Amino acid sequence: MSAAHTPPLFHRHVAQSVSTNSELIAALQAGELDCTQRHLLTADTQSGGRGQHGRSWQSPKGNVYLSLYHPLSVPLSGILSLIIGSKLAAMPIIQTLNDARADNAPAIGVKWANDLGFYQDIADTATGLHYFQKLAGILIEPVWYARKLVGIVIGVGVNVQTTPQLTTRTAEGMSYHAISVQDIINDLPAPIAAPALPDLYTQLSNALTQAVAQFIALSGDDTDATEHAILREFAAADVLRGKMLRISESGQLADGTITGRADGIDAHGCLRLILADGEVISLFTGRIDVIDPHANKDAHALA
């Protein structure tokens, strides 16, 4: 989709929303907003923010809570999530932070399929896990009008000035810690200015629009070239590649857990995993834990 054919963007900001995704979808389905145009809804806080798989999203003031609606006439697939993650990782603010961090600091990138952050270098002594430092999360939802798919709403939450305080309950069993842009800036060798929220709204909406355009291009004549570009861009930002993973709660693995080394993604957006015996499998879904390879070097499957 060229810039000339990109629908105009209408932005509305509110002090509080129950959920920017839910509010935007409801307005579109009620016919209050034009489904042929792009719409951006941002909020200072959310009282019922949502993450993936029905999880909650804490929404203290000072952070980004943004939902972009984009019309879409091609079928949805999981590859869109990967494209979005790659585009967000390439935003100026992420590149600025990576350039300013110490040379030995792990790069901020994409955790399959689309969370933004990085993994801590040292494993937790109690669990043996390398915890993901989560900076941003993404929630993609289809929009139906008169029983027809008319577009998608992409919700993005970015911890900017405030780090959500996670408890055992609010972490929801996932092996991650919350981190903010300000936390990262505080640890830089040389200080830089924190970004203003309006500037981040612009960076995010531009990145999301580019992602949808690239996804639409997959259905065009240049599919192979576009597909290769997507895989290359994701690989450049992939924070899992080469790490030892434990995958569980996957429909493909029934009730089992499997361990292997991450080897990027395939053309369908599935996570490639190299098992201890050299077999390579692809996984469509599953909970990911990054584990200490020395403690699990001989394991590849657990019941």
Rank of each mutant, 00 (worst) to 15 (best):
D115T: 09
A113I: 12
T125F: 04
L197V: 13
Q120P: 01
E172R: 03
A217M: 10
Q120G: 10
K87E: 15
V150N: 05
I84H: 06
Q210L: 15
Q165Y: 09
R169P: 06
T168L: 13
N159R: 00
R169A: 15
D99L: 15
I84L: 15
D222Y: 10
A123S: 11
Q120Y: 07
L200M: 12
D187Y: 04
G151W: 09
S180R: 03
I140L: 10
P142D: 06
D99C: 09
L218I: 04
Y201W: 14
Y145P: 00
S175E: 10
W144S: 11
L129V: 10
F215L: 06
Y145W: 09
T170S: 14
T96G: 06
A178Y: 11
G157S: 00
V158I: 15
G173K: 06
W112V: 03
G109T: 00
I154V: 15
V158S: 01
V153Y: 05
T163P: 02
V181L: 05
S175D: 11
W144G: 04
I94L: 07
I138H: 02
L197F: 08
T163I: 04
L97V: 01
A136Y: 03
Q161N: 15
Q203T: 07
L197N: 07
S175M: 14
G151L: 12
I179D: 00
T96D: 11
Q161H: 12
K148V: 11
S175K: 13
G117R: 00
D199V: 12
G109R: 01
R101S: 14
K148L: 10
D99P: 03
D222K: 15
A146L: 14
V156T: 10
N206G: 09
L200N: 04
I93Q: 07
I93C: 02
I140H: 01
D222H: 14
Q214T: 14
T167P: 14
L208A: 05
L116F: 03
I138F: 04
V212I: 02
Q161M: 12
T202H: 12
T170H: 01
R169I: 10
L218V: 09
V212D: 05
A113N: 02
G137N: 00
V181F: 01
Q182C: 06
L116P: 01
A178Q: 04
T167F: 13
R101L: 05
Y176C: 15
I154G: 06
N98H: 09
L129N: 08
A146M: 09
P92F: 07
D103K: 11
T170K: 02
A207V: 14
P195E: 08
L129K: 15
G220K: 05
Y119N: 03
G220L: 06
F215N: 08
T163M: 00
P106Y: 01
P189S: 08
Q161L: 14
